[in-house]
């Protein structure tokens, strides 16, 4: 009973309702895209993009520009760039990502220190704040995440084929490059939307954790995808409640809940293996 009371008390706060709506949508998008990204060894792209997001947020704040209006195009551009570099650049993928993310972080810190100074804003960008969401953000997030979900569902089989065997897909006339780009674009949007709530340093965990957790237990692509989505949503809600009840930072709480889920799934898969053996 106490739990339900806590919940109903939680959602009398508008900012928590906003956080719940945006968070659930972003978690769902991130986990669906994450399966492909992890399997394609693109996990670090999410991480790189969030750092670029931090840089662009810092610059936008410094010049008093609308944060999302600046971040979205910049991060999308970075996504294209990262994909191109990791595909055929002279610098190898992981090095390219490290290069870009460190540079973006440095630009962000540099600009912030020269303008507003290293204040709570920076702290919020890096580690997230659920107070940051405005009504407008919620609307934009809902629209964009629905867009991401629709495109994902529509391209599901194509994303599978391109993830599983890009060479074969190309040879049979499927524009693999195009679907890689779609994947990068959707990831960029998801990262930007989730970044301010989860924090630039923590958002990529929403992409990576649910996929990895469900891969311990599921052996079918569809099952992995659905399981990742459920894990992600459940972990988000638990993390949000934990952060409210124990007054802990939201982003970090959600990541820790995801870590717990990952550990539990791993333990179950080990147990299964032992029984099978």
């Amino acid at each position: 009973m106490e739990f339900i009371e806590t919940l109903s008390q939680m959602f009398t706060y508008t900012f928590l309702v906003r956080a719940l709506i945006v968070g659930l949508l972003v978690s769902l998008c991130a986990s669906l895209l994450g399966v492909s990204l992890v399997l394609k060894r693109f996990s670090m792209i999410g991480d790189g993009l969030s750092h670029v997001g931090f840089g662009s947020l810092a610059v936008a704040t410094a010049f008093n520009w609308a944060p999302l209006a600046v971040s979205i195009p910049v991060v999308v551009l970075a996504a294209f760039l990262l994909l191109r570099l990791s595909e055929r650049g002279r610098i190898k993928g992981d090095a390219a990502i490290a290069l870009i993310s460190a540079s973006a972080l440095a630009i962000g810190v540099f600009v912030v220190s020269k303008t507003t100074g290293m204040n709570t804003d920076v702290d919020n960008y890096l580690f997230g704040s659920i107070l940051a969401l405005t009504q407008q953000d919620v609307v934009l997030s809902v629209v964009l995440s629905l867009g991401v979900l629709i495109i994902f569902v529509f391209c599901y089989h194509r994303i599978f084929a391109v993830t599983f065997d890009e060479t074969y897909a190309r040879a049979t006339g499927i524009p693999a490059g195009f679907y890689n780009t779609v994947l990068a674009l959707l990831t960029a949007l998801t990262i930007v939307l989730g970044m301010r709530m989860m924090g630039a340093l923590l958002i990529s965990s929403l992409v990576i954790f649910p996929a990895l957790s469900s891969m311990w237990l599921c052996k079918r692509f569809a099952a992995v995808t659905i399981c990742a989505a459920i894990v992600s949503l459940v972990c988000y809600v638990i993390g949000l409640v934990v952060s409210f009840v124990y007054q802990t930072p939201t982003g970090a709480s959600i990541v820790l809940v995801n870590l717990a889920a990952f550990t539990i799934f791993y333990a179950i898969s080990r147990l299964r293996m032992l029984r099978g053996a």
């Binding site: 599978f160 599983f164 065997d165 049979t172 499927i174 891969m215 079918r220 692509f221 569809a222």
Partner: peptide, 20 residues
């Protein structure tokens, strides 16, 4: 190398041949 431990069922893999 990605394929060796890929979490997909045989059915999903074969069906993906029809994608074109």
């Amino acid at each position: 190398t990605i394929q060796r431990n890929f979490p997909a069922s045989v059915w999903e893999v074969v069906l993906s041949g029809r994608l074109g």
